[in-house]
Design a protein around this nucleic acid. Structure first.
Lengths: 165, 165
DNA sequence: ACTGAAAGACACAGACT
DNA sequence: AGTCTGTGTCTTTCAGT
């Protein structure tokens, strides 16, 4: 017992410095930037940049190199914010819901939230019909669902993944 | 006749086929995958894969190659869903709010939504104090803000950007 | 639209400051 | 920790099918 691994950085022995942040600033905007390009931008040669990137990949600071696809161009025009409360709140019931959410490709995000609902889901679908099908046949099929409330996204004002400025 | 520009793809003259989707399936998970790796995975040689990727970049199907950074490891541990209604709903008032949202680095997503509120924001902050500062000094500073409601994210169940399966 | 080859650029490891 | 240098691999273009 009592081996509560303290924190990310302290266990691996490396904290993130200003140069790492500078590298992240470039990579966040373009995951396919070459090491050379990044090296020029942060005023270092390629070797230390390469080492720092590898280190951040291994320590988990860099979660993933993702390609972001345009919703509307792959026939996923509809985005819905979906609130769910469960009937029962025991461990098992929660785990079953979480498993369901992981399996449903329409759900791209799911959070445990404060307030009157238990979960917030971000759902993408091809059309209102497809969303209705998701709602009735996939989500509400689970016998433990209490209330579901849908908020429709009418316009995207801002969408970024940039955390380091 | 009937030149109601039908859809994105038809205007550019290229629709996405099964091979493009296969390439996207790989790139979504790893934006740094080499063309050679993708070519092997989709059973083509490098040239057509390279051409198809370039085409999808230019047509906007591929929005961005992003590096996703771990929230907690860059001191952005708190995530809040924030609902905002405006006092006035004229064009100018809306535009000012949108401009403000674009400038605030704490706001990583903002949507125009249906229902009693006008906007939904996803906000990341270092701490509760930092969020309070955002709420009081940055967001509510705008004189056009009506009501603000904060929902705190207590746990991340699922978080993906994968749209093509 | 694809394959295969060929030139230039890059990633990555080594020796050194 | 960093720069410099070298080798194998990859990107990218071009001729051919």
């Amino acid at each position: 017992m009592a081996k509560l691994a303290k924190k990310e950085e302290s266990t691996s022995g490396h904290s993130i410095d200003e140069k790492d942040l500078a590298i992240l600033r470039v990579l966040q905007q373009n995951a396919r930037a070459t090491v050379k390009e990044i090296a020029d931008a942060v005023h270092l040669s390629t070797t230390p940049v390469h080492e720092r990137i590898k280190r951040m990949e291994e320590s988990g600071v860099i979660r993933q190199y993702a390609t972001l696809v345009d919703h509307s161009k792959v026939k996923k025009g509809l985005m819905v914010i979906c609130y769910v409360s469960l009937k029962q709140h025991n461990k098992n019931a929660g785990a079953r819901f979480i498993k369901l959410v992981q399996e449903l490709n329409e759900v791209i995000e799911c959070y445990n939230i404060s307030g009157e609902f238990d979960f917030m889901l971000k759902v993408v679908a091809e059309s209102m019909d497809a969303y209705y099908d998701f709602h009735v046949n996939k989500l509400s099929q689970s016998e433990n669902i209490g209330h579901v409330q849908s908020v429709f996204v009418m316009g995207i004002i801002k969408q970024t993944h940039v955390l380091v400025h």
